[in-house]
Design a protein around this nucleic acid. Structure first.
Lengths: 113, 113
DNA sequence: CCCATCTACTCTGTGTTGCTGAGTACCAGT
DNA sequence: ACTGGTACTCAGCAACACAGAGTAGATGGG
């Protein structure tokens, strides 16, 4: 898409992945595909796996190795209590930011249009 | 506020500054104060000045040196045509992102509450 | 006169983040 | 044996916001 989107995803992509995991456990390849379905067409595998390793290291998820019938074993990630806390914080911060920016946007469009 | 906010501001803070400049020309010290008023209490001067230098280098703004009665001369920034283009792109990208994430949020909160 | 304080801008170095691009490995169909 | 889809890993990179210090002009108190 744009380099603007790349920069904007910083700090939000991790939250997005946690939000996806909050609906149901999933593995990397699956999450990548789901992100593409959701419209994030530019996000590549390497990025998603990096985030998964990071949130695993931070203890936000539990991991389970599950054999696949179609290839190498899958690492299935489930969000845990600490991860939900992190996700709650994400939604709070996100809410604050969107509110402020929405206010700026109305100020900006006031008089145009 | 939080390190989460710091990461989230990446890619959006420049847009925020451009949006402020779109309402009226301003100088760095003023913008910093305005951001604090708007609720972005963690943003420090160094960050704002860095953004201003960047958008100046990218040609998004015109600069005029205006003497101050209270200190060193001010660098007053005015958004120009290229800057407005950039700002439009920012609002588009931002709109797309907020839409996707809002969808994720409703999916996430569905069944909780 | 000197020093503190407020205004106003600059600069260097740091940590985090997502992207690029390549690599490894398992399995099925031809 | 070879190709292609599945599934994960890793090293190097660029961009960004932050931390913290520095420079400089003006004003007022001791």
């Amino acid at each position: 898409m744009s380099s603007q989107m790349t920069e904007m995803l910083k700090g939000t992509l991790e939250g997005i992945v946690l939000a996806i995991l909050a609906t149901q456990p999933a593995y990397g390849y699956e999450i990548t595909a789901r992100l593409r379905d959701e419209g994030f067409s530019t996000i590549v595998e390497g990025t998603v796996y990096a985030i998964l390793l990071r949130i695993e290291k931070h203890g936000f998820v539990d991991v389970e190795k599950v054999p696949s019938e179609k290839g190498p074993p899958r690492k299935v990630y489930s969000i845990n209590a600490k991860g939900r806390e992190q996700l709650d914080g994400f939604w709070q911060t996100w809410g604050f930011l969107t509110e402020r920016i929405a206010k700026l946007h109305t100020e900006h469009t006031r008089g145009e249009d």
